[in-house]
Design a protein around this nucleic acid. Structure first.
Length: 403
DNA sequence: AGTCCACAGGAAGGGCAGGCGA
DNA sequence: TCGCCTGCCCTTCCTGTGGACT
């Protein structure tokens, strides 16, 4: 019986015409060849890096701009072209792209340099060697032939925040030691104020050249989205105004192209799932909710159990009363929750910090308020819609066994 | 004007895991 | 391999504070 209904589902799915023609074009890791509205940036980066084709070291470059402004995509596309050109001309231009947020790969100084050494074929154990030795191996490998290395460090701010700027100092000075090769750094950061905290020497050498990627406006987003939509969807299935709506929503959020593309993709998926023949405005609305919901659920899932217990307490207190809650109340319910779920309760001081963190993540809203004779405390409430809040509650209950 | 509540949030330090360096 | 170092999580102790109440 069940077997049969499963069969029907699959059969019907296979029979159904997809709204998508090439969904990959809307996936987050798709690297488009064509990058509209970034010609100026492409040209300046290309001319900055061009000296490498004649065997000269290009200036170090620091690129910054908010998420979804095309920084990584532009750099990747320009450097790929550069590598091809180098091959044609017989100059070895080696491009190494590392995302400093990638855990276990490039999230500490040791790992970063070890990864670089490995890219040049040197064996480096994942731990144990002095960092100097790893630098040595990397420099040796790099220098064994005449070449230009362009090292792209994406999300460089997160690595500096974690480990300090010493590795940047070392990398910017390496050219003094190399005989054959030359190394240029390209740093990419979302954090606009990132260089302010750097050692002045590092700052001046990393930012020999700087380039700001400003956010896309709604018209530009629309344009980008339209060209993707044309190729990604079957002709005629994207209803009027859909692309515009996605662009407008993303433009409100600092012109994030990634967000716009996500919205369009999810809208399409929702339309397909509900057997609609066209993607419409209502699907975009639902997509927006769905994306927000997934974001919240993802954040909640990634929290440590203690934080989850605090959140669970807040949600339940709010459920019963529907008015702002204070820290003390949260802590007493939290202690009870710990007892029933076998957790070691933390002190109020610590819970107070966890509440601040949940506030910063945007899951709850907490404001320090004085209630006069009745003390000074944080007033807390969930910061998500009722619908999302209930889903968070279910998640905590079913997956993490609270309640 | 003074008191006092219910915490906020800073400082210092303990305990632990994991990385570092010889 | 092993002691040292560092960062993180957490506790303890503490001072500070806005405003209702007396």
């Amino acid at each position: 019986m069940q077997q049969q209904s499963l069969d029907t589902i699959f059969d019907e799915y296979m029979k159904k015409e997809s709204l998508f023609q090439n969904k990959n074009l809307l996936s987050t890791n798709h690297n488009p060849k064509n990058l509209p509205h970034r010609n100026k940036e492409i040209r300046s980066i290309a001319s900055l890096l061009a000296p490498s084709l004649k065997g000269n070291k290009p200036s170090n470059l620091f690129v910054y701009g908010k998420t979804g402004t095309g920084k990584s995509a532009v750099i990747k596309s320009v450097t790929e072209k550069l590598r091809e050109k180098g091959e044609e001309n017989g100059t070895e231009v080696k491009i190494v792209y590392l995302n400093c947020k990638l855990r276990k790969v490039a999230d500490t100084e040791y790992r970063l340099v070890a990864e670089l050494a490995r890219k040049f074929g040197k064996e480096v154990p994942s731990t144990g060697l002095p960092t100097d030795e790893v630098y040595e191996r990397f420099f040796d490998a790099l220098d064994d032939d005449k070449r230009i290395l362009i090292l792209i460090l994406d999300e460089i701010d997160s690595l500096v925040e974690k480990t300090g700027d010493e590795f940047l100092y070392n990398l910017t000075r390496v050219n003094e030691e190399l005989k054959n090769s030359k190394l240029s750094l390209v740093g990419i950061s979302n954090d606009l104020s990132f260089t302010n905290d750097l050692d002045p020497r590092v700052k001046s050498s990393l930012s020999e050249e700087e380039l700001l990627f400003s956010p896309y406006n709604a018209t530009q987003l629309e344009d980008i989205l339209q060209s993707r939509a044309d190729k990604a969807f079957v002709e005629g299935v994207v209803g009027g105004g859909v692309v515009q709506k996605c662009a407008a929503l993303a433009a409100q959020e600092h012109g994030d192209a990634r967000r716009a593309i996500d919205l369009l993709r999810v809208s399409g998926e929702l339309a397909e799932r509900s057997d609609a023949e066209k993607v419409r405005g209502e699907h975009v609305d639902r997509a927006e909710n769905e994306i927000d919901r997934n974001k919240v659920l993802e954040v909640v899932e990634s929290q440590p159990r203690q934080s989850q217990a605090v959140l669970w307490s807040i949600i339940n207190l709010f459920e019963d009363r529907d008015e702002m809650i204070q820290t003390g109340e949260v802590h007493s319910l939290y202690e009870e929750v710990c007892r029933t779920s076998g957790l070691n309760p933390l002190t109020q001081r610590r819970v107070s910090d966890l509440i601040s963190e949940l506030d910063m993540l945007g899951i709850i809203q907490a404001k320090v308020t004085s209630k006069g004779r009745y003390g000074r405390t944080r007033l807390i409430k969930p910061a998500v819609s009722v619908n999302v809040k209930n889903q968070v509650k279910n998640l905590l209950k079913e997956k993490y066994y609270f309640g």
